[in-house]
Amino acid sequence: MINIGITGQNGFVGKHLYNTLGLNPEEFQRVDFENHFFEGKESLDNFVKNCDVIVHLAAVNRNPDPQEIYDQNINLVKDLVASLERTKSKAHVLFSSSSQEGKDNLYGKSKKDGRELLANWAKNNNGTFTGLVIPNVFGPFGKPNYNSFIATFCYKLTHGEIPTIDNDGDVNLIYVGELVAEIIHQIKIGETQEQYFVPSTTSTKVSEVLNKLENFKNLYFDNGEIPELKSSFDYQLFNTFRCYFDFEKHYPVQLVKNIDERGAFVEIIRLGIGGQASFSTTVPGITRGNHYHTRKIERFTVIKGKALIQLRKIGTKEIFNFELNGDEPSYVDMPIWFTHNIKNIGEEELLTHFWINEPFDAANPDTYFEVV
């Protein structure tokens, strides 16, 4: 069992890393971190003492005063180094630097200097240190106008705003799930690398990203069609995009019910990709689900009866409740990292149609049980 602590645990990358480590409780024990630990030596020392591995992600990357960015980031590193020395820690420390290291700005300088401070600590104390130089990271739950231009584009497209491009340059990207996998890989290796350049997984132009997102907006957000997804990047971008919906306003989406003398016809889903379609019947009072996925795309459509669908983002307490009625067929899509369920709240049998983008694979199910 490896005890792992993450400074900046509740930040964009930190939360993804924390949640992913939680999927392997027999291998990793998470040591909880709170931001106020940096405000007192005792609390920070107690945190450091309990860690076999420390992933230092806490940092500031937006501030009107660039000097404030530099000073705050360097002070965080200095505080961590001082705690490591006071506790005589032998923890493996991993530091998130940035590809901005090579640019002429104080944020990039704070990352470069911070990495070198930790590398010197490791040299002087026979420690283990990995300095990760990370390209542009994107993924679900990034803050718009803060973490990534992709987060900003996704938010604007799903909230009635029009994204603009200031500089249509080439950009190297890595999906947050891929970055987390790389961090875990480096933890398992456990070797000192003062400057390790994390490889990007996608190179593209800002305008090409925006074109894809606008297509998702037109096909999926406006019309409910799952678009054709040709690459891993397309899947990653699509799963990122659909986490920015205002769920309470968007769901449930009512379907068009075409009625003639023969009865009714309702189109449930239009696809640019394949997947698996199924249906279930549920007796009154019974709840199905209470699990979440980290990559799958899934749609629940109520055809008959009354249902309550609930969603809760992993690591949070807020629950989204949606009541659906088969008399007015409608659907709710399940965003990744949201545990979800469906309950028959009516007096008759509930009939639900399910579509998911990949058939169930017992060897790689991507299904994690947690009560909403």
Rank of each mutant, 00 (worst) to 15 (best):
Y107T: 07
I268E: 04
G102V: 01
W121Y: 14
N24T: 13
I336D: 00
W121G: 08
E261P: 00
G8Y: 03
W337Y: 14
E101Y: 07
I309W: 02
L132F: 03
I6T: 06
I309Q: 06
A181G: 10
A119H: 01
Y70R: 09
G11W: 03
I183R: 02
N75E: 15
F245G: 04
L17R: 03
H353Q: 13
K78A: 15
I268Y: 10
D104I: 00
N218Q: 15
R86K: 11
V302M: 05
H159Y: 10
P140F: 07
K88F: 12
I69F: 02
S280V: 12
I74M: 13
I183G: 01
R262Y: 12
K123G: 01
H250G: 02
P25K: 07
L76I: 12
S83M: 06
G40P: 00
T202M: 11
V48L: 03
I269M: 11
I356G: 12
N10R: 15
A58V: 08
D168I: 07
P64H: 10
N223C: 05
F247E: 08
F354A: 05
K217D: 13
L23W: 04
N321R: 15
V133L: 11
G131N: 07
C154V: 05
Q186D: 00
E225S: 11
F153I: 04
V13D: 02
V137E: 04
S148H: 05
G131H: 04
Q9M: 15
H159T: 11
G272N: 07
E116S: 13
E228L: 14
Y18S: 13
